[in-house]
Design a protein around this nucleic acid. Sequence first.
DNA 1: TTGTAAGCGTTATCAG
DNA 2: CTGATAACGCTTACAA
Lengths: 339, 339
Amino acid sequence: MTRSESIERRVTLADVAGAAGVSVATASKALNGRKQVRAETRRKVLAAAESLDFRPNIFGQQLKRGRSGAVGLITHDLEGRFSIPVLMGAEDEAGSGEVSVLLCDARGDQLRERYHVQALLGRQVDGLIVVGARPDPRPSLGRLLVPVVYAYAPSEDPEDMSEVCDDVGAGALVVEHLLTLGRRRIGIVAGDRGYLAARDRVHGATTALTEGGLEPVGGRALFGSWDEAWGRAGARALLREDPDLDGVVCGSDQIARGVLETLREQGVQVPGDVAVTGHDNWAPMSAQSRPPLTTVDLNLEQVGRSAAARLFAAIDGDPSPGVQTVSCRLVPRESTRGY
Amino acid sequence: MTRSESIERRVTLADVAGAAGVSVATASKALNGRKQVRAETRRKVLAAAESLDFRPNIFGQQLKRGRSGAVGLITHDLEGRFSIPVLMGAEDEAGSGEVSVLLCDARGDQLRERYHVQALLGRQVDGLIVVGARPDPRPSLGRLLVPVVYAYAPSEDPEDMSEVCDDVGAGALVVEHLLTLGRRRIGIVAGDRGYLAARDRVHGATTALTEGGLEPVGGRALFGSWDEAWGRAGARALLREDPDLDGVVCGSDQIARGVLETLREQGVQVPGDVAVTGHDNWAPMSAQSRPPLTTVDLNLEQVGRSAAARLFAAIDGDPSPGVQTVSCRLVPRESTRGY
DNA sequence: TTGTAAGCGTTATCAG
DNA sequence: CTGATAACGCTTACAA
């Protein structure tokens, strides 16, 4: 049966040593690339290990080394839209070394988070990356016995290590893009005011407008929610405010979809009459819209890579406290082509 | 510094025993709920463990027990749209026990998959769940030294354990729903013919139509791709085929969005004139469309739970080879309300 | 009821 | 260059 087959005792170093006709100690050295072993002997050991399909028991190693070569990644992002890219970035960064990334889902729940922290610590992870559900500062986990990096959502404690997206810069980025295209009557349909990310993006955008001697259509950004329905409402409001509107900066790709829809219904050409930008570079939303949406990529993989790099440094005794920022990247598509 | 603080030696069972004034053995028994220990002593040990914030080194335990209490989850789903719900389901199923789920992302790459399998095996996971990128059968990992369950995408080897969605049933489900609403001229805008899921859904749908004495508008389903653009094209084709069309079954929520858009542009009322169904219950697509989309939920969390349950059973020596199916669930929304 | 001691698989030390 | 031997932290006979 499957079971009786798969239950056979795992191959141990002793088996390899036996097969190679050497002691466990020598086998260990050979396998670990220690140079105090004759080439010939090493070859024999390697061959034996190979033929027996030997895989070292990491628990045995860990027991000695006191380091597990694994880091935990705790996410609160239910859909995995943010955490998966971060995970991929972290795996990339880890890749060259021998580190594994263990992902747990805490679902925005404090209790579940504590549970997973304990579980991961029990598994002797060497460090932790915590990915928030939204970019607002979150409570610190406090001092643990391994280093922690907060990604996407920073820790409230400035002494913790945090790696976040540059929402202010992103806001400026899109406005500068629109200004370059000659747009001057630019409205802002922002996200939910309760989110720092929404406010930051607006802040960056209005600052850039001010520097260009302009102000948003209607005098200020329109806050609402993150969804398409709000995008549609926001677009109507902007058109009411200024029928000669020629640009709209949106707080998310979903909002932008709603904006596009209303504009089309009102017979407004995009990008001919009005240029529109989204935010998130969420492919199914932004690449599939009509026209495809110029948007901002959060560079989440880079966030993951940087977070992992800082974590590994901290594990090696070189922590870098504070909040660090990863720049966003403009992804130009049809919705803002020049006239 | 952070470092010197966090580097302090981890608390060991010996520390606890010392603090409680008993031997390690007794401390171990007390902590593990063995009943050969006086209540008073147990209390003391528990208190000591608590105050020292003792967390057992799982590697020490594992070394003895030969079981790690962790299972690996390897995903190929880049966006995490499918794998995160499966992960959540698996965690739920594991939750009551003391099992952790470790997630690795193989990104649809065979090599990376092998690498992660080795890494997880090296970490002594007790079993593996593999989540495919798409529901088509995939190569078996072969016999490993721990049990494997394939989720979402089944293994090509029927002797492996696989847990998949019931796409045929889902196809039937939506057609029966439309028939109940009195729709009779139903078109099918299917997904990419290269995907078994697309063909299965169509198979279920056409069978249900046949049983109702009907056939799809145009005589057969229209295959294309999974995106909105194809949905728009498909809708135009159907209207050309039969202007009195009164229902459209779509292969995905994205396709359905495209269909809705074209219908609105052509002045066709949904659901008044034509009822439309999607597939996936992908919230940002289906709940945000106009009108909100009746769709099919894949019950991926249930897939995850079942997969995990079978895995745990197999780990306990009770494997259940073969493909098992999880039913989908209809999610009725505005796009198919009655007349 | 408690303590002693052996051993899980690995690596490091040190003697041969 | 190789091989005993002693840890690492924990569980578990078995002895007290």
